[in-house]
Design a protein around this nucleic acid. Structure first.
Lengths: 189, 189
DNA sequence: GAAATTACCGACCGACGGTCGGTTTGTCTA
DNA sequence: TAGACAAACCGACCGTCGGTCGGTAATTTC
């Protein structure tokens, strides 16, 4: 089980790359399986052998995208000791990464409605949300009973400003605004 | 031009009501025009005479829903003098209203991906976002250069917690968490 | 070398959103 | 009030799309 498994994996990768580009460029609805087939040179049957359907293909694309983002955020935070500083660095890194149209369209726009809120939330838990929550906890600035909710609210707020930046908003102002936002949240009075 | 105009308006209203229910129950994608036709007793041609397409129908549904929500929020805030208190009351009212599955699915889940982010944002500006922004401005707690961004972030955060409550989260805790969140944001140090 | 597994193929299907030519039914005006 | 006009409504038809299915070829396993 070697040559065959490799060929299969290579095919899946190829489809994944192409699908990622198409989903990002046109969005989920306006990307037809037919187009994916044409651009990948694969047959219909072959694609459905590897992916259960269009939705499953999207989920694979989303998973891969989020994983890649996660790696980059970890890199941005590496070495920082102060929890508040880590949180700040991670959030800013995420905003910059969300400038990528691929991330925007796939992760921030289409994901919730395609997967449904429940599955989307479960997937987020394993990626950006999970990271942000533990970072927020480490700061100790939020009471435990509010930790989960505040983490959710903060992530939503950060995602929103990422979208605003991506859509022509001023980068510097947005980052300053987010920093101020964070500062206020972490200041327990 | 009376009997005719009335009949037309009545038909539009009927379709709108039915479509609202279906979109809320099944989501946009899983609601077929065919079903709307059957439940309304209307013919295909008639529906396309009144609405340009499925997307236009959804937009009409969304517009009506947001307008209704807006009215109720205004009622909740009426009479309050202190800007911070108005903001707080409006936000809490919005969270309670977002407990309605209709509002959830249509306004918070499907709207961005169906309309596209740009058109969705423009529509929000005329409704919840517009209200929240002016309320936030009235408190004077946010520097002008951050007002727009902070209003966006705050709305996103509140929407997120509304979704969490709606999906089985504890109502009381969520409201307390949102109040704390708001308190920190408004406290300028 | 036979059996089993996997990659891949492409004709076909049902559902769906949307179109279009046409009919009916009020309304306005000459 | 007759006739032009427009709005409301009808339903057969179309193209596209996601998904199915019976099958072939190639590789691995026993």
């Amino acid at each position: 089980m070697n040559l065959k498994a490799e060929r299969g994996a290579a095919t899946r990768d190829r489809v994944l790359t192409i699908a990622t580009r198409l989903f990002a460029e046109r969005g989920y609805d306006d990307t037809s399986i037919e187009t994916v087939l044409q651009e990948s040179g694969l047959s219909r049957g072959a694609l459905y052998h590897h992916y259960a359907g269009k939705e499953a293909l999207f989920e694979a694309v989303l998973e891969a995208t989020e994983a890649a983002v996660g790696v980059k955020i970890v890199q941005a935070v590496r070495g920082l000791k102060d929890p508040a500083q880590s949180l700040r660095a991670g959030v800013l890194a995420w905003i910059r990464l969300a400038g990528d149209p691929v991330v925007q369209r796939i992760v921030l726009i289409d994901a919730p409605s395609v997967l449904g809120w429940e599955r989307w939330r479960a997937l987020e838990e394993r990626h950006s949300f999970g990271m942000l929550k533990s970072a927020l906890q480490a700061t100790g600035a939020v009471p435990p009973e509010f930790l989960d909710l505040h983490a959710h609210m903060l992530l939503a707020a950060v995602n929103e400003s990422a979208l605003l930046v991506a859509r022509g908003g001023d980068h510097a102002t947005a980052e300053a605004a987010v920093e101020e936002f964070l500062r206020r949240l972490l200041a327990h009075s």
